[in-house]
Amino acid sequence: MDGLSERQYAARVGLSRGAIQKAKDAGRLVLHADGSIDAEASDKRRAETTDPSKSRAAPKAPAAPKAKLKPVPEAAVSAVSDTLREQGMPAPAPSGGMTYLQAKTANETMKAQERRIRLQKLKGELVDKARAETLIFRLAREERDAWVTWPARVAALMASELAAALGEGITVEAAVMQKVLEAHVRAQLDSLADIRSGLG
């Protein structure tokens, strides 16, 4: 075989085998004596005899879709910078962007921190902040309520002990003692109310 088969020539010029057979039947291809296609001569004849307005352009390769890169939010960049600084590593400038290695390092550091926190929670070393604040508030309220009712419980006993200690003829009224104690207890509770827990 001196030339190309229909299938080989079709692959070479980017047409279907049926289109090559039509061109062969129409006499637009140059054939060798054995019936194979003379590629060079056939290309030349096809170019001369084909109407350019009716020819199909060579199929274009589909354009690869352009990957749309989403801009990284400033909050994410600053979080990465903070994480790198906490670990004693150089952080990128706020407007200078960051390298892939810096972002990867910060990501791995944050993963390690999350795992450490999860492990500490499982071991019972960490408690939920809201739960701790609720518990502290409840305990403080119970303590305050106990102190508010304390003067009424002990005023009569303290009045009699004080009268006995001061000697005969001196009496201390329980109601007066209760009022004095309540005033001092409330003043103390008011001063303690200004103390805030260190959980904030």
Score class of each variant (00 low, 15 high):
residue 122 L to M: 13
residue 105 T to N: 09
residue 106 A to L: 04
residue 111 K to G: 00
residue 113 Q to M: 10
residue 107 N to G: 15
residue 100 Y to N: 05
residue 93 A to G: 06
residue 111 K to V: 00
residue 107 N to D: 09
residue 129 K to C: 10
residue 94 P to Y: 02
residue 127 V to K: 06
residue 99 T to Y: 00
residue 93 A to K: 04
residue 126 L to D: 00
residue 103 A to M: 07
residue 119 L to K: 14
residue 108 E to R: 04
residue 95 S to T: 06
residue 115 R to N: 05
residue 96 G to E: 01
residue 95 S to C: 13
residue 128 D to Y: 02
residue 94 P to G: 03
residue 104 K to V: 12
residue 110 M to W: 02
residue 94 P to R: 01
residue 109 T to F: 03
residue 97 G to M: 00
residue 116 R to Q: 08
residue 109 T to E: 03
residue 128 D to A: 07
residue 99 T to W: 03
residue 102 Q to F: 02
residue 95 S to D: 05
residue 118 R to P: 07
residue 120 Q to H: 05
residue 131 R to G: 12
residue 98 M to F: 02
residue 97 G to R: 00
residue 133 E to Q: 10
residue 113 Q to V: 11
residue 125 E to W: 14
residue 114 E to Q: 11
residue 126 L to R: 04
residue 130 A to T: 12
residue 130 A to N: 10
residue 110 M to F: 00
residue 124 G to T: 00
residue 123 K to H: 06
residue 93 A to Q: 09
residue 132 A to C: 11
residue 116 R to W: 09
residue 121 K to C: 08
residue 127 V to P: 09
residue 106 A to Q: 11
residue 118 R to C: 07
residue 100 Y to K: 12
residue 132 A to R: 10
residue 116 R to F: 09
residue 123 K to G: 10
residue 123 K to P: 02
residue 110 M to N: 10
residue 104 K to Q: 13
residue 103 A to N: 11
residue 114 E to V: 06
residue 126 L to N: 00
residue 133 E to N: 08
residue 97 G to W: 05
residue 130 A to G: 03
residue 98 M to P: 01
residue 95 S to I: 04
residue 107 N to F: 15
residue 102 Q to H: 13
residue 111 K to Q: 10
residue 121 K to L: 08
residue 94 P to Q: 04
residue 97 G to D: 01
residue 110 M to Q: 12
residue 99 T to C: 00
residue 104 K to C: 08
residue 119 L to N: 10
residue 109 T to A: 06
residue 133 E to F: 11
residue 110 M to R: 13
residue 109 T to V: 10
residue 103 A to I: 05
residue 123 K to F: 10
residue 100 Y to C: 13
residue 119 L to A: 06
residue 92 P to R: 07
residue 108 E to G: 05
residue 110 M to L: 08
residue 127 V to M: 15
residue 125 E to T: 09
residue 102 Q to R: 03
residue 110 M to I: 04
residue 117 I to G: 07
residue 93 A to W: 15
residue 128 D to S: 06
residue 129 K to V: 13
residue 112 A to I: 02
residue 117 I to K: 11
residue 120 Q to G: 00
residue 121 K to G: 03
residue 122 L to Y: 12
residue 122 L to I: 11
residue 117 I to R: 06
residue 91 A to V: 14
residue 108 E to L: 15
residue 133 E to S: 12
residue 108 E to P: 07
residue 93 A to F: 00
residue 101 L to C: 06
residue 102 Q to E: 11
residue 106 A to T: 13
residue 121 K to I: 04
residue 112 A to E: 10
residue 128 D to I: 03
